[in-house]
Amino acid sequence: MTGATVRFSNVVKEYPGGTRGLDGVDLELTGGEFVALLGPSGCGKTTALRSLAGLETVTSGRIMVDGDDVSTVPVNRRDIGMVFQSYSLFPHMTAAENVEFGLRMRRVPATERRERAAASLELVGLAHLGARYAHQLSGGQQQRVALARALVTRPRVLLLDEPLSALDAKVRVALRDEIRALQTELGITTLFVTHDQEEALAVADRVAVMRAGRIEQIGTPEELYGRPASAFVADFVGLSNRLPGVVAGDRVSVLGSELPLLDQAAASGHVEAFVRPEDVVLAADGIPATVVSTSFLGSLRRTVVELESGERMTVQHSVDDRPGAGERVHVRFAGAPVAVAAL
């Protein structure tokens, strides 16, 4: 089965007083695609998701599902499944009754209802906890039940509103991988809101970075990481060293090194260049620097060095190199800046 397509065209949400929660959002999801909406709090990502759910009415623009404009369809007829940040399970119902609720609303006969609810709970690995109440479940289990509840009605679109942000780090990673696996298996078109860039890059087919009610960039995780379209995206997605540079022609000069300029449209002149820590290496010769601190991250090590000019930068390298604080080292560039921003 292929999922529904979703299209936001020029969607605007204006609050009384004139501030815009959404300022002309254009976004397209193909059938079965998993798209993450990423951005800092207040950027409009949750508003966009809630507009698709029908929990917010938009001021102008159109929201289409499978080619039908749903902007005026009330929430309870939009046929979407939604998982909230937390505490959305009905506390007076068991997990199974929670999952059955949507089927009950669709007047599914009792026996079928029970079977489908059980199957859905099994899908999220909680078949044995159907009789528990929300307060008897852990946070991760509650979110699984909420996921089962959202999926059981086979909605056209699945909406996830920061479903992992209230969970512990370990559970968070495990559940996010499970959600992705389930989504791939079911082929359901999914919109996932998060403020955690690592999470977005890890699970989504494409990531849309939002800022101030607009989509700043949309692309695959690789595109977003390797070719951020703006300083904001470069800064928000992944770690970057922000270094002064000068653009001339198709080259950018950073700390005396001539590096290739990826963005051919960049104007000549003084810029801030964003260099990923893995694009800098410790070397026998190159730019002299002093080690400030170093941290062990399991499979790799990151070291902060201070250059003679006073600039600080982060170098990512093998755990076998173990520079000590105060040690004199040399660094050199091994890759191009992912983005440059005019000063």
Binding site: R50, G54, E56, T57
Partner: peptide
């Protein structure tokens, strides 16, 4: 604003 879904 929230279309008919608030508790109020």
């Amino acid at each position: 604003m929230s279309a008919g879904t608030s508790v109020a």
